[in-house]
Design a protein around this nucleic acid. Sequence first.
DNA 1: CAGGTCATAATGTCCAGACAAATGCGACGG
DNA 2: CCGTCGCATTTGTCTGGACATTATGACCTG
Lengths: 254, 254
Amino acid sequence: MTCVNLISMTANLAIDLDRSSPVPLYFQVAEQIAEAIRRGDLVPGARLDNEILLADKLGLSRPTIRQAIQYLVDKGLLVRKRGVGTQVVHGQVKRSVELTSLYDDLRRSGQEPATQVIALEPRTVDEEIAAILGLEPGAEALYLERLRFAAGEPLALLHNWLPLGLARLGATDLETRGLYELLRGAGVRMRVANQRIGARAAGQSEARLLGERRGAPLLTMIRTTYDDQGRAVEHGSHVYRASHYSLEVTLIER
Amino acid sequence: MTCVNLISMTANLAIDLDRSSPVPLYFQVAEQIAEAIRRGDLVPGARLDNEILLADKLGLSRPTIRQAIQYLVDKGLLVRKRGVGTQVVHGQVKRSVELTSLYDDLRRSGQEPATQVIALEPRTVDEEIAAILGLEPGAEALYLERLRFAAGEPLALLHNWLPLGLARLGATDLETRGLYELLRGAGVRMRVANQRIGARAAGQSEARLLGERRGAPLLTMIRTTYDDQGRAVEHGSHVYRASHYSLEVTLIER
DNA sequence: CAGGTCATAATGTCCAGACAAATGCGACGG
DNA sequence: CCGTCGCATTTGTCTGGACATTATGACCTG
């Protein structure tokens, strides 16, 4: 186990390496630099030591250090400029894009999410859903309909279609945890999601369920999620009360 | 200049390398593989030769090949699995996330965008905008207000704030080209954008401008864009006619 | 025939070094 | 005083190799 200071000037940033750990070295380095940025030990604009010096200090090779830095550059935490050096990004850029569910979002923001399962059953898919999920027309898929509350108020009406046999989902599970969390726990590795976000006026029945008036603006989101092999694992069509919720997205261009 | 077939089985994919070009070799490889996927020469599920063989065929080292493949994995075109190999992703995953403007989106989808500039002038910023753009309170910034049409119909009302001196923007330019295109042309390198998407009912004046009735659902987007150094280069607050437009977002988890 | 075991193949990680290219700054000269 | 050239610094790209880890399928055994 080694432990080395990263910044000569300030000498307040230390990195521990555990070569016996299964966690890759580059990842250990990246995590600890990211943590230093979150903590504020590395302020925006601060320059890291150059790659060769860093590699030397940590007893690693330059490619390994580069891999660690590249990882953080991709996440938008660092900026590299040839001939200049590597700096912590100016301005407080938010967390990178992540595949999260509404449930995760709510819990992270400190609200208390609750869920009421309205439907949970295999249903015959129509042509459109079959095409999206890559099933034969007339096949069955798991249909799921939920009403999501936050702070005791109805917030969203969620419709989902999932391929059968993907995970064992019980109504009890779904009322205490988020769908994405359950899928991840079942070993589903979600990787790409395609979302279409729009808005429309609330219909009669939606309005009643959500506690809005008919014609109230609703935020709509249609999302298809694929796993790391490109197979569709979930298709959702959701409506949110625009007065209570908005979506946040961060884009990073490489 | 070398030219090598990539896939032994089909032998229909060739890659040209130009070592005298300033374009990095890994990028040349990546581009041509991506092109082959777009063309359909590499169908979803097709397996690439393994990295060592590829490197051998192309006369490159394995890290260079890996860099090319990694680039495409990050873009969501390929999937790597240890012990198995590298495959073209199943299913038609859309293009990766990009920083685009409404104008670009419309032109790409074949519609004919038109723009009417309502306001284009330096204005004193309020506290909120100053904080977002990183300016002193009371400083000035360029205020821009536009009405965007597609196929002759009003589509969106766009409000923007930009730091002064970023680019010379004329009303004529803005009526014939998109804001992002103009900024890129002026050397601004946009890299990260943070968007908040919501919905609300149209007010009286918005409704009149957009040709909707008061209370019609509107899609709202508030976006701040940062350059590669993390400096804010643009802040926009836009409303779209929900009946005519929706936003598409692709998320890729690494 | 079923199940576990082992070999094989492929990617993941890491190392040591070399040269290229861009940036910023200082020294020099007009 | 100002501009230009050149140099030092730093990241970008590329090489060639080594070992670790994991998934797959063939083989052997019970």
